[in-house]
């Protein structure tokens, strides 16, 4: 279940006298932007020490720093009458059904279900500008509002949270001028932050691979441009062969650590981000 969907239906919980509290392991400040953007009116609790995650037994087996997605509904006495841990996330209707069934009032026929509505995105323009620059950190122009940049950067850096995805979605939605490549770069960058920010060796290996790849491409285009000069061509071919050997070494070093760096999950996540980027582009093309 996504928190925005829950928010859309919050009135139906309120009329039943049901409160909602959403818990994450982020520090409270980390979720302020998301709360504002989604217009969440229910309580967002923060459990950075994971005391509750442990007490409920919903630690994520892949990354111990996160909770697995879980929904519980408890009665007035604190006993659980509905729970859904992991796998398919329940939508609000299912939770409401659980409440009604628990009260012996299922199915309810006296309630009109409102259609889902889209929530307007309210995100400061500076954040978007900063995000645009996040994907070009090394070429950060002097004119960028550094404060805004740092704030967005820290949101994304919190890795694995809703905020990172929202930051990216907002980036994609607002980047009118960005082309597909820029969005795909952003996707790669976010994946990189989510998975490798705490793994300096992975980052080093990734940079190494990128450098060697660039070198090979440079040499290849040089050879193509110099095709008339046979003397230089031989020397370039030799250099290219060396560069290619270095490239495959860099590739081998990365695949040797694939399991430790969770490369499969990173790839899946990046595909997800890229799908978002692609969908945004398609939507814009249709407009």
């Amino acid at each position: 279940m996504q928190l925005g969907e829950l928010q859309n239906q919050i009135d139906r919980f309120t009329t039943r006298g049901v409160s909602v509290v959403a818990l994450s392991v982020d520090e409270p400040e980390a979720s302020t932007v998301m709360q504002k953007r989604l217009g969440l009116s229910f309580d967002l609790g923060s459990d950075p020490q994971q005391d509750l995650v442990k007490a409920f037994g919903v630690q994520n087996p892949d990354t111990r720093e996160l909770a697995i997605h879980a929904v519980y509904i408890v009665d007035k006495d604190g006993s659980v009458f509905y729970r859904k841990v992991g796998r398919r996330r329940p939508v609000s209707q299912e939770l409401l059904d659980a409440v009604d069934a628990h009260r012996g009032d299922y199915p309810r026929t006296d309630e009109k279900v409102r259609p889902r509505k889209r929530i307007a995105v309210d995100f400061p323009t500076n954040y978007f500008q900063a995000l645009l620059n996040v994907i070009q950190v090394e070429r950060l122009p002097a004119s960028v509002n550094e404060d805004a940049f740092n704030r967005v950067y820290s949101i994304i850096q919190r890795g694995g949270s809703d905020d990172a995805l929202i930051a990216f979605k907002v980036f994609a939605a607002r980047s009118v001028r960005a082309d597909q490549k820029a969005l795909f770069d952003a996707a790669s960058w976010l994946t990189h932050l989510l998975f490798f920010v705490d793994q300096p060796e992975a980052i080093k290996a990734g940079r190494n691979l990128a450098q060697r790849l660039r070198r090979v491409q440079e040499l290849e285009s040089q050879i193509e441009a110099n095709s008339a000069n046979p003397n230089e061509k031989d020397a370039l071919q030799q250099t290219l062969a060396k560069a290619r050997a270095g490239l495959s070494e860099a590739r081998a070093a990365i695949s040797a650590n694939a399991a430790e760096w969770r490369l499969d999950r990173a790839k899946t996540t990046m595909r997800g981000y890229r799908a978002v980027a692609g969908a945004e582009i398609n939507m814009r093309l249709k407009q």
Partner: peptide
Amino acid sequence: LDKLREQGSVVIVFYRGHW
């Protein structure tokens, strides 16, 4: 939680990214 419980049932959501 104990304050929320006083008013009725409580939905508790543990959330993380959307993936």
